[in-house]
């Protein structure tokens, strides 16, 4: 019993994206590995670069096994994301902590009965400002989306004055920048 690993509710896949403009978006996306125990998660986390050490243009994505980290996947296309945008200063102070908290929320199934709505999470390392998002599978599932957003905000330790927004992928795909519309905020 002492030596058995602790199983997770789901098997998770960690993906890595490195921006190489000579290749297609999909060719730049690589599956690193899959894991389904607490111990194997830490073995992986301890052996990869911290997000803050990645070069600009890179992403990590952690998704449930069978869901690809792209809008087009059947489990994502009706969904959306709770988006955390970080200032350049936050890369030093908070980026790695926020990403680790995000990973723990996912693998620990910390969104109660709505954990089933979660598809995965993405971190984008960008010169203009990093982003972290939790993706859920159904943007119209208001109760689930709001619950996940509230728990997530609390886990990150964000102040009640800070507002985070949820955007449907269908809207994100057709709009950008200031035109991006928040479907929900918490």
């Amino acid at each position: 019993e002492c030596f058995s690993k602790h199983p997770l509710q789901n098997r998770w896949a960690l993906w890595f994206f490195k921006n190489d403009k000579s290749k297609t978006w999909q060719d730049n996306l690589r599956l690193i590995t899959k894991f389904d125990t607490v111990e194997d998660f830490w073995a992986l986390y301890s052996n990869i670069q911290l997000a803050s050490k990645l070069t600009s243009g890179c992403d990590y994505s952690l998704f449930k096994d069978g869901i690809e980290p792209m809008w087009e996947d059947n489990r994502n296309k009706r969904g959306g994301r709770w988006l955390i945008t970080l200032s350049k200063q936050q890369r030093h102070a908070e980026l790695d902590r926020f990403w680790l908290e995000t990973l723990l929320c996912l693998i620990g199934e910390m969104f109660d009965d709505y954990s089933e709505d979660v598809c995965g999470a993405v971190i984008n390392i960008r010169a203009k400002g990093d982003k972290i998002a939790i993706w859920t599978q159904e943007a119209e599932n208001r109760d689930g989306v709001i619950h996940i957003g509230r728990v997530y905000k609390e886990r990150l330790g964000l102040s009640s004055k800070m507002v985070i927004g949820y955007q449907a992928h269908a809207d994100t795909a057709t709009k950008s920048g200031s035109l991006m519309k928040n479907k929900f905020v918490v």
């Binding site: 602790h6 199983p7 997770l8 509710q9 607490v38 111990e39 998660f41 830490w42 073995a43 986390y45 301890s46 908290e101 723990l104 693998i107 620990g108 199934e109 910390m110 954990s115 886990r155």
Partner: peptide, 20 residues
């Protein structure tokens, strides 16, 4: 039975790997 783990439980395992 669903496998749920809280933050502190999960973090406890990080130190096992950090000390190896």
């Amino acid at each position: 039975e669903k496998k749920r783990y809280d933050r502190e439980f999960l973090l406890g395992f990080q130190f096992i790997f950090a000390s190896m």
